[in-house]
């Protein structure tokens, strides 16, 4: 026996050892498909929940923002502003960035409209002056985002010709606030469910350690360092996490497919160009990454806790 082939270097050894263990782990899990799938499915469902909710919030935000297009702002002009100036201002505003439409309504038009709609016609005739102001109705273009739209509206109310602006915005702000809260809740839920994944993987690994107690003792007897003994369990945990991430992706993607038809119909009814946005590439990576990380944490934590308790005697 000669030692012609030297042992590989540190990095080569690391790669070799982990590759070797990974293949062995996948083989081991493959031989027990039912229990492996069950654990992976539990992890998958746990991961799918926050991922799905996140997607839901994202889509709701998109919908609510598209509604902003239907928002109109009424700029009530000062009585000192002439009809000609009012019309010119409406023209000017139309050219402004972020304004989709602007319409000038003179005092007379306002009055006519009011008389027609309110049924107070007779009463109005008693008044000497027309009490209604001229109005410019602005429809914002929401493509620049909610903040830009808000800024534009504030600017318009500060125009010298404008007496008062009525922005019916409150309900949208409330919706945004609610969405913000839901988003935060999803974050909290994600943290709790991440913990659940760690515990699930940890518990499975704990049972695995119990089953392989004798093997661990033999390993320790022949001088295996803790890192070596820990490795198969670490890989098992990571495999559960990755498989769980993939299962979660399938769940969420399936749900999206099931919802896309009704969503299109709904959008059609609202004459909106809205469509469900799906899982992006980075979201897919994030799901797999979360599975990897949580599986690794769960197994590392469990093995570290239990390995010291198993000693050959």
């Amino acid at each position: 026996m000669s030692s012609a082939a030297p042992r590989p270097g540190l990095l080569g050894r690391w790669t070799q050892d982990h590759l070797r263990e990974f293949v062995a782990t996948v083989g081991r899990l493959y031989r027990e498909p039912v229990s492996t799938l069950l654990t992976a499915a539990v992890v998958g469902i746990t991961l799918a929940l926050p991922a799905g909710l996140h997607l839901l919030v994202k889509n709701l935000s998109a919908i609510s923002f598209s509604w902003e297009g239907s928002l109109q702002t009424s700029l009530f002009l000062k009585d000192s502003v002439s009809a000609a100036r009012g019309r010119a201002l409406a023209q000017e505003l139309r050219r402004r960035r972020g304004v989709q439409k602007s319409e000038y309504i003179s005092r007379e038009q306002s009055l006519a409209e009011f008389r027609e709609l309110s049924g107070f016609g007779e009463a109005l005739q008693l008044l000497e002056d027309n009490p209604l102001p001229a109005v410019i109705v602005i429809t914002p273009d929401t493509r620049d985002g909610a903040e830009a739209t808000d800024r534009l509206m504030t600017e318009l109310t500060r125009l010298p010709e404008v007496e008062l602006a009525k922005v019916d915005h409150k309900w949208l702000e409330r919706l945004y606030a609610i969405l913000g809260m839901v988003e935060r809740s999803v974050l909290i839920l994600s943290a709790v469910l991440a913990l659940a994944v760690i515990v699930t993987v940890g518990n499975t690994i704990r049972l695995d350690i119990e089953n392989r107690r004798d093997e661990i003792v033999v390993m320790k007897l022949i001088g295996a360092p803790d890192a070596f003994i820990r490795r198969p369990f670490l890989h098992t945990g990571i495999c559960y996490g990755l498989a769980g991430g993939a299962i979660a992706w399938i769940f969420v993607h399936g749900a999206l497919l099931a919802l896309s038809g009704p969503a299109r119909r709904l959008a059609g009814l609202y004459e909106s160009g809205f469509s469900l946005s799906g899982l992006s590439f980075s979201a897919t990576l994030a799901m797999l990454g979360a599975g990897f990380l949580l599986g690794a944490i769960g197994s590392f934590w469990t093995v570290s806790r239990h390995l010291g308790k198993i000693e050959p005697a």
């Binding site: 026996m1 082939a5 042992r7 590989p8 070799q16 070797r20 022949i222």
Partner: peptide, 20 residues
Amino acid sequence: ALPLVIRGYAHEDIGRRVRA
């Protein structure tokens, strides 16, 4: 092979030593 795997021997090396 286990003690050799623990010590991180290369694959070909392990086969040779185990058979010896």
